[in-house]
Amino acid sequence: MTRLDLHADPVDIACALVDIPSVSGDEAVIAGAVESALGREAHLEVERVGNTVLAMTNLGRPERVVLAGHLDTVPVNENLPLRREGDVLHGLGTVDMKGGDAVFLHLAGTVTEPAHDLTFVFYDCEEVEAARNGLGRIERERPDWLRGDLAIVGEPSNAVIEAGCQGTMRIELRCTGKRAHTARAWMGVNAIHGLAEPLRRLAEYRARDVEIDGLTYREGLQAVRIGGGVAGNVVPDEAVLTVNFRFAPDRTPERAERHLREVFDGFDLSVVDCAAGALPGLSAPAAAGLIEAAGGKAAPKLGWTDVARFAALGMPAVNFGPGDPTLAHTREEHVSATEIRQVAQVLHHFLGK
């Protein structure tokens, strides 16, 4: 088993983590290495639940900060083992999100007298269906471990604090018609043609820009799939249009659905997937302290991440990690060693002061 030294340069920890393959569902080895390393730190209480590893301090501080990062990666795509070129680390997981995990592990080993009590959550199965997500399992089985005043998720954010996140909803619009031979098309009703009106409404839709806590969240409503057709000579009697709505965190899922039913009034609409967004909560004392430590700047998260799980538990949550999120899940994943150290320095200042 790889021995992780939590007192080493976080860049070296990142290198060691990347070279432990941990595709979703196969995290036992990396979870064992993380558990062993955390267990050597006398100031931490450590527990393992499946392939999720938990650690915390219990120093009686007035506030608690939760730091969470997933250990799994998407499947290998000719990007292991790690390759290091000067300041840049290339390889699977360097961005999503073993660079962030390395920072958190380094903090777990080196911040022994924190200003806030700390909880570390290193969880499995983030890259697959939500039902397998280790963070969700901890919420169900060990809810006390997820209580705090601020959550920091180490997803890649270009070393910029990204507060809150958008909600997401996927709907299906279904049109029905009547089959007929295309040679006698007037005898049928073309269901695909029936989608012309909702597509027109989509093309004319003007999405909102919403300012919350000084951050601007941009909404988006997009067709993502069309399905229909029977054969090359048959007028189709059914067609389905799938639409994705990325909504600002001032909308609840209920309000988002109500809005879509207004936009597509008159059509058969069903919700097939939904996840609430997360308000930034930057006015909370712990969040404000983190923003100050990072130079007073924050950005909105345009996308959905596990910060929403923490927001649902009643705490402000931010994404803060090294790496360009647009490189996640690509063969070209790479991260700057300088950025890993930068995130570690900011968090060390915030947590240790």
Score class of each variant (00 low, 15 high):
residue 142 R to V: 07
residue 122 F to W: 00
residue 85 E to P: 10
residue 109 G to L: 09
residue 89 L to Q: 09
residue 121 V to A: 00
residue 91 G to R: 04
residue 103 V to D: 06
residue 129 E to W: 11
residue 100 G to L: 05
residue 87 D to C: 08
residue 136 G to A: 02
residue 97 M to N: 14
residue 98 K to H: 06
residue 80 L to H: 11
residue 92 L to E: 10
residue 116 H to C: 03
residue 82 L to R: 09
residue 138 I to F: 00
residue 104 F to M: 12
residue 137 R to K: 07
residue 126 E to N: 11
residue 112 T to M: 11
residue 99 G to K: 07
residue 93 G to K: 00
residue 136 G to M: 09
residue 100 G to R: 08
residue 97 M to E: 11
residue 140 R to L: 11
residue 89 L to A: 08
residue 103 V to W: 00
residue 95 V to R: 07
residue 102 A to W: 02
residue 88 V to H: 13
residue 117 D to E: 09
residue 116 H to Q: 01
residue 121 V to F: 07
residue 98 K to C: 03
residue 102 A to V: 03
residue 92 L to P: 03
residue 80 L to F: 08
residue 90 H to C: 02
residue 101 D to F: 03
residue 102 A to D: 07
residue 134 G to S: 00
residue 106 H to P: 03
residue 132 R to V: 02
residue 127 E to M: 12
residue 135 L to M: 07
residue 103 V to M: 07
residue 139 E to H: 12
residue 107 L to R: 08
residue 107 L to T: 04
residue 80 L to R: 14
residue 88 V to N: 10
residue 140 R to Q: 13
residue 101 D to P: 04
residue 101 D to L: 02
residue 105 L to M: 12
residue 86 G to M: 10
residue 81 P to L: 08
residue 100 G to K: 09
residue 97 M to S: 13
residue 131 A to G: 15
residue 135 L to V: 04
residue 110 T to E: 12
residue 129 E to R: 15
residue 119 T to L: 05
residue 127 E to C: 13
residue 91 G to F: 10
residue 138 I to M: 01
residue 135 L to G: 05
residue 136 G to Y: 09
residue 116 H to G: 00
residue 120 F to R: 00
residue 105 L to Q: 03
residue 111 V to Q: 08
residue 84 R to E: 15
residue 140 R to N: 10
residue 115 A to F: 06
residue 81 P to C: 00
residue 96 D to E: 08
residue 108 A to F: 11
residue 112 T to Y: 04
residue 98 K to Q: 09
residue 119 T to K: 00
residue 129 E to A: 14
residue 121 V to T: 10
residue 115 A to I: 01
residue 109 G to M: 06
residue 135 L to K: 01
residue 122 F to D: 03
residue 93 G to R: 09
residue 85 E to K: 15
